[in-house]
């Protein structure tokens, strides 16, 4: 196997052009999947036998929550790659992840509390799952705040990468909090290894929704990555060519 594709991903002009070509594909496929999931989840899927139509919040809450973790993990991996191999594009990717991840964390917290009120009788409780998800939001905000506190981009990259990597310890805590502790939060409906604890007509829109939001994240990430690459490379000659064409 050759590693040329990997090396090319470290090249700013290549990444700028590739991201530009891929953005509309991810965006439009995401739009189609999300409209399908919206109809399937709100209209076709039957009401839950315990939670009635209230369970339909799952189709926005679970994708937001799983993306909040997936984006953080991606951010930490990109930051580690940037730190270890000194690849600027990787730092740019990590920086681009943070605002998107923070926004999905906010959505997960708000939709979760809107789901908690009718089912648990409260909008908020200092439960392990909820508290660790709130900590995740603070990690995103801390990462963004730390970056903006440096004038020097290289120092911002390195310092924020360390924070991103240390903070990744919170990801398994959020994920397994409902298993490790006696949480008010319900257990997971999806399982990669065992049997899903959700009926198929309810499961299909959930999987489509998760896939749709993941592709949406990819499209937004690519746009932000292009912006970040341009900002870092604005003095380079390829930028002038790329912008004039």
């Amino acid at each position: 196997m050759t590693w040329t594709w990997f090396h090319r991903l470290g090249s700013p002009p290549y990444v700028y052009r590739l991201a530009g070509r891929l953005t509309p594909w991810f965006g439009w496929v995401a739009a189609v999947l999300l409209l399908g999931a919206l109809y399937d989840g709100l209209v076709i899927a039957p009401p839950d036998y315990q939670q009635g139509d209230g369970f339909r919040i799952i189709y926005v809450h679970v994708p937001a929550a799983s993306l909040s973790l997936m984006i953080y993990t991606s951010m930490a991996v990109a930051a580690a790659v940037g730190l270890i191999w000194r690849i600027k594009v990787a730092h740019a990717a990590a920086a681009s992840c943070a605002p998107i991840g923070a926004s999905f964390t906010v959505v997960a917290l708000i939709t979760g509390s809107l789901w908690g009120k009718p089912m648990w009788g409260t909008y908020w409780v200092w439960d392990p799952r909820l508290t660790s998800e709130l900590l995740l939001l603070f990690l995103y905000l801390g990462y963004m705040g730390l970056r903006s506190s440096f004038d020097d981009l290289q120092r911002a990259d390195r310092a924020s990468a360390v924070l991103a990597i240390v903070g990744v310890v919170n990801v398994p805590i959020v994920k397994y909090s409902v298993v490790w502790w006696n949480s008010l939060h319900q257990g997971s409906s999806l399982s990669l290894t065992g049997k899903d604890t959700i009926a198929t007509p309810m499961l299909v829109p959930l999987l489509v929704s998760i896939l749709g939001f993941t592709l949406f994240f990819a499209a937004i990430l690519l746009m932000r990555l292009r912006a970040e690459v341009l900002r870092r490379e604005r003095a380079a000659s390829w930028v002038r060519e790329a912008l004039s064409s």
Binding site: L42, V107, I110, T111
Partner: peptide
């Protein structure tokens, strides 16, 4: 609870 959740997203 359902509509505000979808609205936030």
């Amino acid at each position: 609870f359902v509509w505000p959740s979808y609205g936030v997203m």
